[in-house]
Each structure stands twice: as C-alpha cells, then as structure tokens.
Design a protein around this nucleic acid. Structure first.
Lengths: 262, 262
DNA sequence: TCAAGGAATTATGTATACATTTTTTGCTGC
DNA sequence: GCAGCAAAAAATGTATACATAATTCCTTGA
C-alpha cells in the first residue's frame, strides 16, 4: 500500500517521495470530437490545464493516462501529448516510466514568480521604449488607460467592474509584451503567469487605493515609453510588478494593507 | 511545387510563409534499442536537439516525422514526443496538422536572449546572496575560481584550455542558479541558453583580456554573494552577462575588440 | 500559357495492440 | 507480525493501423 514516486523534471533527478492519492472524482465532461477545432490534443491540453489551475487536483496527485482518457473520452495519445505540454509549462512533473503528477507549488515559488515577472516585464518595458510603439499599440494602451480612469473614478468597484478592470490591466501589459518585439520574453512572461490559482489569484490585493495606484503606474510607464525613456520605463515597471508581490506577501502573512495618506 | 507553411507557436497564429526544403541528407545514425537508458523519447530528443543546435538543419526546414523515424530507426511515437519537447524549448515551431519545423532565429533574437539572461541571472545572483550558499556550493565556486585563476595565469589559451575554462565558467554560473533555490529561474535560464549555435557560440569573444575580465567579474560576484550584498551581486551579474552581449554584437558587426589598457 | 479545380498522394492526428517497467499483491519463512 | 521475495496486476513506453487534414499533381478550361 505504500507507493512511491519521484519528484522530477525533464533532465531528471530522482528523489523518492510518496505519491499523493489521486481523487479521480475530478470529473471532466467528455471531449466532443467535432472537427475544425484544431486537434484533440490541444483541446485536451486546455481542458486539463484549466482543471489543474483551478485546483481540481491535489498537488502531487498522479495523472493516470488511462483514467484521464476514460474521463475525457479520447485515447491515451492526445492525453499523453497534453500531459507533456503541461509538464513543459511547469504545471506537471514527469518521471520516465513513472508518469506525470501535479506539481507542488510552494508559496515561495509563487512569490518568486512575481520577482521573475518583475525582471521580465521591466525588460519588456525597456524594449518597448527603445523600439517604439505602433499606432495600433498606442491606441490600445490609450484606450486601456482611459477605460481604467473611467472605471476607477467611482469610489468602489463591483464584481463586474473588477472583471472589466482585469481586462484593462491585461490589455495594458499584453500590449507592452507585444511592443517588446521579443518572442522569448513573451513566452517567459506567460510561463510566470501559469501558476496554480489556488492561493493567490483570488487573494491579490483588490484594495481600491492599491488598484488606483497601480493604474497610475500604468500612466507613468506609458509616458516613459512614449518619451523613449527606457531606463525609467524599466524601473517603473519593475516596481509596478514588485508591488504586486509585496501585496501578495502581505496578504499571505495575514496582514491587511496598512492605511496611509495618498 | 510551391508549398506553404505557417509560422506558429503553441497558442497558434497563422502567418503563411513558404517552407524551406529539408535537405534530409542530415544523417543521424540509428538509435540503439538498448534498455536502461531511460526512454527512447528522451534519447531521440537529445539526438535531435543536438542536431538542430549544431545547425544540421536549415532554418525553416520541416521535420518530417516519418523520415526522422526511418533515420533514427524508431517509430513515430518517440519522434513526435521529441519534436513536441523541442518545440516547447523553443527550438522548433509547430502548427496543428502541419507539423514541426526548425525555428528561424534572427540575430536580434539571439542578442535579446542575452539581454533576458542578464535579467534572469542577475536575479539568480541576488537570490543566492539573499538565501546563502551551502558548503558544497561554496566549495564548487571556490574551486572554479581557483581553477580559472590557474588556467588564465598564462598569456594565451590553447584549444584544450579553452574547453577547460568553459567548464569552469559553466560550473560557476550553474552553481549560482542552484543557489538561487528557484526552479523556474533555472528553467528559464536554460531556455535562454538553448539557442542555435550557428553564429554565436563560436564567435563569442575569446579575447584573452575579455576572458580575464569576465573571470575577475566572477570573483567580485562571489564576494558580493558571500557578503550577502544582494544589490551588488545583482548589478555585477547583470553587467557581467550584458558584456557578453556587447561582445557578441561587436563581433557580429565585424569590429574587433578595441585595444585598451587594463 | 496559365488559373482553377479536383483527385491522388503524403503528412499529421488518433486509436489500439503489444512491450517493458513499475507497483501491488500475496506468499513464504522466520 | 513482518522482512523478503516472486508472481500478478497495472501503468507507462513503443509500434502500428487507421482517420483526417494538407499538399501535390494532374486535368480541364479559358
């Protein structure tokens, strides 16, 4: 009854640890085999990724290929492909002949991910300042800034408006990643963001003052980029992302955002 | 006779571009089916990666699954697995139903990779300074520094000694990545390094003065880490890696390293 | 001659059978 | 009861056959 597993990545190192039992109650509806939607492998990848990110699986749980293939109603082939993709995204661990398991993310790893993002996004901001924005990119960012101003004008945000501001925030950052003209950078930022939702996405500060301050950061960052002030764009973005990390750490340690004049 | 392909990544965007014909003369000896060596998929992955990195395939060349499986003497299954791995490493492009092709790296992308590495490795140095080194790590770095001192004592380096110094250099950086205690960071640095060898690995400055200077950087970085001077460790490492980029750019633009007193 | 369309070919995507390894089970002996 | 071992079970790895999509090639028409 005592099973074993190895914590392992692609260049594998063997450290024996016990498997966490997979509550395979994690039910996923079957995959409609309708055509036109790219490949089954990609659909299955998205499905399993969403499932893992939303915390349907226990960290350390083994991803049995046959069970998943039964649940999703496809053969093992697309399942294996999907699991491999998710492992290379860092969401799963893989050990040769032992299969895939849900990666266990320590809180410190989630915090570190923000630290890495701060470095990467600050570089993206610098590149954007150095390389300039297209008209389209300027338009998108300006619209995002205006929309944000509008949303944050009121004193409090409802659920719907928070979602709307999330979209605004995404558009701002995403456009800068695009403007950096560097595929590798974009890929890596994406890696930083694909970290299990369990603890932080819900936790991250929605304190109204914090949101307003971060939106003001956006304005300054955009100004710096427009003026080709690469140094300032970099520093502002680094601080901007790092502040999210600080908010996260504070939330995790159970302390509320301290009140202060703004 | 006019074939087409799509430049594409995993979240795919379709931009039609012509295939480059694959000179499938790129001969790879077959795969010995001996057991014990992990899985065939992993062996094949290493084989194809090495082949691509060493420039055996034309950029843009299509990676035909059947031809590769014939060349390597395995079925399509491990080939597909390997190609998927290499695509997620960024070495290949993938388009659904169109297959894999060798990614075309612009010079600017290779230069940018150094810029990214500078950010990531500087963060690693900071983490190492903040989090401290184990006795083993200190020992490895100190040995690397001594060995480097010894090798660089003479006025010129032979082929063998350059390889030896390469190992020393690797040990230094690798140990710092380990000391950063951040798997995601290590993974990303590895991504930065897996960029085709074609132009730069051979080109990167082996000017003796440059090597000596970079080795001196190592000493200073180690000092900063030992003293837990996170800020200085970060800045020194950032400049250290950035200087390699500068050397690369200079080499690519055909200018020699300017002489100057040291 | 060239463009357009459609079969034929070829390639990739998926399912499945088999091989190999791992894990479990259960027996033996102490 | 438990350590140790062997057989059984189950999981992953690989090969192969078939399904489906993309590409090629050939025919047809202007």
């Amino acid at each position: 009854m005592l099973a074993h597993s190895v914590e392992c990545r692609v260049p594998f190192v063997r450290i024996i640890t016990p498997w966490t039992r997979m509550d395979d109650i994690a039910l996923d509806p079957i995959e409609p085999p309708r055509s036109g939607t790219a490949t089954r492998s990609l659909s299955v990848t998205d499905r399993i990724r969403a499932s893992v990110l939303s915390g349907d699986f226990e960290p350390g749980a083994r991803m049995h290929e046959v069970r998943l293939s039964e649940r999703l109603g496809v053969s093992r082939t697309p399942i294996r492909s999907a699991l491999q993709s998710l492992a290379s995204e860092g969401l799963l661990d893989y050990a040769p002949n032992r299969g895939y398991s849900v990666r266990r993310f320590r809180t410190s790893e989630i915090v570190d991910a923000y630290e890495i993002r701060a470095m990467l996004e600050s570089l993206a901001a610098r590149f954007a300042a150095e390389r300039g924005l297209t008209d389209d990119e300027r338009a998108i960012i300006e619209q995002a800034l205006e929309e944000g101003d509008r949303l944050l004008a009121r004193d409090e945000l409802g659920e719907e408006e928070r979602i709307a501001y999330g979209a605004v925030n995404f558009a701002f950052h995403d456009t800068i990643h695009t403007a950096a003209r560097c595929r590798m950078l974009g890929d890596m930022v994406r890696l930083c963001q694909s970290v299990p939702q369990s603890s932080h996405r819900n936790v991250v500060s929605f304190d109204h003052m914090d949101v307003r301050r971060r939106h003001d950061d956006h304005h300054r960052i955009y100004d710096a980029i427009l003026l080709c002030d690469a140094y300032r764009a970099e520093m502002l973005m680094r601080e901007h992302v790092a502040s999210v990390k600080t908010g996260l750490v504070r939330a995790l340690s159970g302390r509320a955002t301290p009140r202060r004049a703004r």
